[in-house]
Simulated assay, not measured.
Amino acid sequence: MTIEKTARLSPRDLLVALLINVTWGLNIIAVKMAVMATAPFTAGALRQLIVLLLCLPFFRWVPGRMVPLAWLAALNGAIYLIFVNVALEAADNVSALAIAGQLGVPFSLLLGIAFLGERIALPRMFGILLAFGGVVVLVFDPGVFRELPGLVLMATGTFTWSVGALLQRKLADVPALTIYAWIGLGGVVGLLPIALWAEPGAMAALPDLPLRSLGWLVFSAVGSTLIGQGGMAWLLQRHPISTVLPLTLAAPVIAVCASSYFFGTVLTAPMIAGGLLTLTGVVIITLRSARAGPAPRPADISKAP
């Protein structure tokens, strides 16, 4: 049955949008806490194991689509989390990393231009420059400059996710939860051996892991994947992309503000300026992309966790 799309949002739609923004915004806190409670590779392996178990009923072989699906599973299931989790372990200023994490939007746009032959007008190009310029401004803060290795790792991880998102756009005919089942499997296969080798102490301590720490892992897996991605798919089935995409713009703001509050990070003038520049660039890209393109299939929508 085809659902008629409308630009009018019901209270239920707004509630779903709120849940998406909150779960995506708080996800960086959950990942940081999970990494602190265990270790980077162990936390990543456990998170992807939860994703795999939750999506297991939708796990299936997809004839003719397995090559891009396998690459996507490796990139977004394992390699992305290696960079991001190590970055979060190394850095204390999670707010700065949250700002750098927003580079996924301009990275995805640039990759679309390079490999899909997409064209963009000056407003979105200006948005790309603002987004990257904002991250550059962060380095002028002496406190953030000490976090440069973490920023580089986060930006590299975000680029890796963007490459995976490009592959995911080629899998629009594959159900979203099937894709995430494979991503979960890719994470377990890729990260579990590394965790067993590099973090034997963390793996041995898992039976004694406090429920609170396990809760952070569950929140990250469920919030980013099922609520975030599932909620976006649900909204896109009912509304045009021009209506849905702007609803997610609160997520990066929540990420920066919540991580600053939770970890007691002081938002200095360079951080505020850099954050505003980056977020302004993301807003421009998102609004112009929503206006320019047709509504994607649910599997096209992804968000850097």
Rank of each mutant, 00 (worst) to 15 (best):
M1E: 14
I3T: 07
A7W: 03
R8S: 14
S10E: 01
L18I: 12
N21S: 09
V22Y: 04
T23D: 06
N27G: 10
K32I: 11
K32Q: 12
P40T: 13
T42D: 12
A43P: 14
L46F: 14
V51L: 08
L52D: 01
L53R: 00
C55I: 05
L56R: 00
P57H: 06
M66L: 07
W71V: 07
L72T: 07
A73N: 01
A78P: 00
Y80S: 06
F83S: 14
V86W: 15
E89T: 15
V94W: 14
A96T: 13
A96Y: 13
L97F: 10
L116I: 06
R119A: 10
R119W: 06
R119S: 05
A121M: 08
P123F: 04
I128M: 04
L129K: 03
L129R: 01
A131S: 15
A131L: 11
G133A: 09
V135M: 11
V135K: 11
V135T: 12
V136M: 12
E147F: 13
L151R: 15
V152D: 05
T156G: 13
T158I: 13
T160Y: 01
S162F: 03
A165V: 09
L167V: 10
L167R: 11
K170Y: 13
P175V: 06
T178R: 02
Y180F: 02
A181M: 06
G184C: 04
L191S: 04
L191G: 07
P193W: 07
P193I: 04
L196D: 07
W197Y: 14
A198F: 09
P200Q: 02
M203C: 14
A205I: 00
L206E: 00
D208I: 02
L209Q: 06
L209S: 05
P210M: 02
L211N: 02
G215R: 03
W216E: 03
W216C: 01
L217K: 04
V218D: 09
S220L: 01
G223K: 05
L226Q: 12
A233F: 10
R238I: 12
S242C: 07
T243A: 15
T243Y: 12
V244A: 13
I254M: 10
S260A: 11
S260F: 05
F262W: 09
G264L: 08
L267R: 03
L267E: 05
A269C: 02
I272N: 02
A273I: 07
G274H: 10
L276A: 02
T278R: 03
L279E: 10
V282H: 06
V283K: 10
I284W: 03
L287Y: 07
L287D: 01
R288K: 03
A292P: 06
A292Y: 03
A292I: 08
G293W: 12
P294R: 14
A295Y: 09
R297I: 03
A299W: 01
I301W: 15
K303E: 14
A304H: 14
